[in-house]
Every structure is written in structure tokens, then in C-alpha cells.
């Protein structure tokens, strides 16, 4: 089944609502707890990045009998050096984001650790697309 969410720019307080909604559906589908936890962590981090680094965007989720596929598309500033962004602890988060507890530079590493397929494409000035798949 397909689910779609719009993430709004600058809505720090509401960041995480989409991952929450997906978690709810996965629990209703009786997806095993450890798999839900992986999806929750990976999707939450990607959703937060859309809010703190870009200007919101669109999340499409496809739940299939054997895997969950999540695509997050934003039209934000893009990432100049993706290899660097993947490193643990690397962060360009603003003070504002850090004050809210984000910006530890563990987001992308956690997405990679908690997914069975991970892909990030980005073009400076155009935007970033993150794809995450977790097997059920």
C-alpha cells in the first residue's frame, strides 16, 4: 500500500509526524518489532533532515509484503560532498537546530545502519532525494 506525506518548511515541532504515522500503520500490519524500530529510526532521521537542512518536501512510502520502501524528496540547497555527509559526526546544522537536540551528525550514518538499501542523490541548488528500503 502507498502512503504519502508533505513535510512543511521550518515546522520543527511537527517534524516526525510522518514517521509516526508510518510506524502506526506498520504496527497495525503486525510487522515485527525490530523491523519497525529500524524503519522508525531511519525514516525519522531523513524526515528531520528535510526540516532542518532543506525546506520541507514530500515523502512517499510503499509497503509491500516483503519490504518497505521510503522515498524522501526535497528541493532544498543540496549536499556538496555526500561522502563527507555520510561520516559520523559531520554536521552543518544551525544553532537553532542544535538547541532542539538535532545536529549530532549521526542521521545519515543511522539511516545506513538501519536500512537494507540506502541511496542518497543530491544536486547543489536543486535538492536531495533519499531512498531507504527495509526488508520485512
Amino acid at each position: 500500500m502507498k502512503l504519502s506525506y508533505t513535510v512543511l518548511e521550518g515546522e520543527y515541532a511537527r517534524a516526525g509526524e510522518a514517521s509516526s504515522a508510518v510506524k502506526k500503520v506498520l504496527k497495525q500490519l503486525a510487522v515485527p518489532a525490530n523491523v519497525i524500530r529500524k524503519i522508525a529510526v531511519a525514516m525519522f532521521e531523513a524526515e528531520i533532515n528535510m526540516v532542518i537542512h532543506a525546506n520541507g518536501g514530500v515523502i512517499d512510502v510503499d509497503i509491500l509484503p516483503d519490504k518497505v520502501f521510503i522515498q524522501l524528496v526535497d528541493t532544498g540547497p543540496g549536499i556538496p560532498d555526500i561522502e563527507k555527509a555520510k561520516q559520523e559526526g559531520f554536521s552543518t546544522a544551525s544553532d537553532e537546530a542544535r538547541d532542539l537536540g538535532f545536529g549530532a551528525g549521526m542521521g545519515i550514518p543511522n539511516m545506513m545502519k538501519n536500512s537494507d538499501f540506502f541511496n542518497i542523490k543530491s544536486e547543489v541548488g536543486k535538492g536531495t532525494t533519499v531512498e531507504i528500503a527495509v526488508n520485512l
Binding site: Q28, A30, P65
Partner: peptide
């Protein structure tokens, strides 16, 4: 298992 006995059935019901 309110939504179905297996994933397939549950997804169908959710849809």
C-alpha cells in the same frame, strides 16, 4: 492481529 492474519491480508484491509 486485528488487521489480518498475514501481511497480505492486512495490507488489503488497510487499503
Amino acid at each position: 492481529m486485528r488487521f489480518g492474519q498475514d501481511m497480505g491480508e492486512a495490507i488489503k484491509n488497510m487499503e
